[in-house]
Design a protein around this nucleic acid. Structure first.
Lengths: 328, 328
DNA sequence: CTGAAAGCGCTTACAG
DNA sequence: CTGAAAGCGCTTACAG
């Protein structure tokens, strides 16, 4: 339908075609009240016919709307580690934002300090923020002016909605499978202590173990195979009778398996191992795990930020399904 | 050094601090001639002291500079398939662009037709384009006005520089290893026919085979394990005596290995298998492969697009190293 | 070499 | 309910 022009249609083109002023066209397009039904009708039609998409650069100039959605990754030493998970979030956001001609940026910021959010808050090019690996300290630093334009893929706050995987129920499903299949001396490899979105998984572990009258055994890990290796060393040293290990992510679980097998401990014969995320690696390693719909989460979070509603959107937790394979 | 303000510094702030006009400040900041050394000095200092980063939204308004770098993925049926590789490119671009407050977008566009580039060319929010999986037809559609602002991660053209892995030498190294280790009936699983950046790999295969006086055997594959499975079926049907398979990517090679082993064909005893990319999966599968420095390539390509030089940058081919493991 | 002015596309008080 | 005008931050002819 859109006419082929040498340049994209502007609001001026739309207004002229609809026979109204720029102001009226703008009111219609921004969905304001106080416009006659006819004007609404004309403008909307003109916009469709011209294939109009508003220029976010111009919007950013007149409001402080911003031209980009920043993916803000909280990390110690504010150094950016780009793993698989983060890549998928960024790519999804870039795809979703493209339809509105908004760009995506990727930045690390400091874990602590009340000013951690300042650079973003002061940057007029920032339309909204997707928080990754949030901490309470970061959440507290979020400016009120950002309400409705920040969401957290992780834990939320009064101001910031959480949109994340339901890793509590996912972890529960895994733990129940371990217990139901007769495992009793189950250790858990957690993530870094400062990452509160993993607390839900630790809670699931603790509750299932308590309910079954079993002793809790946790060690701190990271998101890498190497951390799984170190964790396994620690577990075997402290609890040589361990008969199952549950790790917060697949990469770690793979490191656990490799270390166990290197010590001639059979998986799953001697020790069952389960991860979380259901990555491609897990499929090849026949690893028991739980799904993590990263793209769906990232898309929902991005849309929430783009919408920039005045009110805080509700939290959303995406279901995680148990994927039973050979290792547990 | 930068003073903490409630808003980011504008060029007006810089000009005032330097004691010159906005125009002069702009000339200095854009690196034009015709400015006194003193003015240059003052303005530069003021910019540093204020932590000035120019607002790309405003730039985009006055020039047609654009606020985002679009990652344009050519694909049949213009449907976007986001794989690992693409994710890494997007995340890298998003990280590099963030420093200049530019955003990144991810879009698919049609493989054919002289108009495929039009929507991008007409969009004033587009600062530059990173082409992925380019074809000649797409390259021909690139507008002259985009010279210096498009680079191709793949094949290039007169107008568009290529920045990519040197998959010719990488493939050669793999082929030489296969031949040197005594393999003689070597099949190659190529990529989709329309993807010209893979021609360099096919050429390496052909040349090594010719030089060794061996017969060429190629089948078409994709970038997935399933395509490796189908390719293996075809290879075993046509050349049951095959003793090595070289696939254009690790995912395909893994599919090849799985299929061979399912048929009780030993890898590497009966058939050696090699891939390309050196992904994490390859490490776990002990797959012989060649490195593919995706992040370095994406960073170089992004910087070239951001620089937006008037002249076409030179082509760049990043070296690929052989990674010898168990499968070949 | 330098400044005042116009303009990019949009929104939003301000008058009607 | 509607239009004319100002303004967001920048660059670039246009005069000096």
């Amino acid at each position: 339908m859109s006419t082929v022009e040498s340049r994209a249609a502007t609001i001026y083109d739309v207004a002229r075609r609809a026979g109204v002023s720029k102001s009226t066209a703008s009111r219609v397009l921004t969905g304001q009240q106080r416009v006659s039904p006819e004007a609404v009708e004309q403008v909307k039609r003109a916009a469709v016919e011209l294939g109009y998409v508003r220029n976010p650069a111009a919007l950013a100039m007149s409001t402080s709307n911003g031209t980009r959605v920043v993916i803000g990754v909280a990390s110690p030493r504010s150094q950016l580690v780009v793993d698989d998970y983060l890549c998928r979030v960024v790519a999804t956001a870039a795809r979703v934002c493209a339809a509105e001609r908004i760009g995506v940026g990727l930045e690390a910021f400091a874990l602590n300090g009340p000013d951690s959010f300042d650079p973003l808050a002061r940057d007029p090019t920032v339309h909204g923020v997707l928080l990754i690996n949030t901490t309470e300290s970061v959440l507290n630093a979020v400016d009120h002016r950002f309400a409705g334009r920040v969401v957290s893929i992780g834990v939320g706050s009064n101001l910031v909605p959480a949109i994340d995987v339901d890793n509590y129920l996912g972890a529960r499903a895994i733990m129940c499978r371990l217990v139901d299949s007769g495992r009793r001396r189950i250790a858990m490899v957690t993530g870094p202590r400062w990452m509160p979105c993993l607390d839900r998984m630790t809670r699931a572990y603790t509750q299932v173990m308590s309910a079954a009258g079993l002793p809790k055994r946790t060690v701190v890990g990271g998101f890498t195979a190497e951390s799984g290796q170190r964790a396994t060393d620690a577990i075997l040293r402290r609890w040589p009778d361990v008969d199952a290990v549950f790790a917060v992510c697949d990469a770690t679980a793979l490191g656990v398996i490799a270390t166990l097998r290197a010590r001639h401990i059979d998986v799953p014969g001697d020790v069952a191992v389960a991860g979380f995320d259901d990555t491609e690696l897990a499929y090849y390693a026949e690893l028991t795990t739980a799904t993590h719909p990263v793209e769906a989460i990232a898309e929902a979070a991005t849309r929430a930020v783009l919408a920039a509603r005045a009110t805080r959107p509700p939290d959303m937790y995406f279901p995680s399904q148990l994927v039973a394979r050979r290792t547990a």
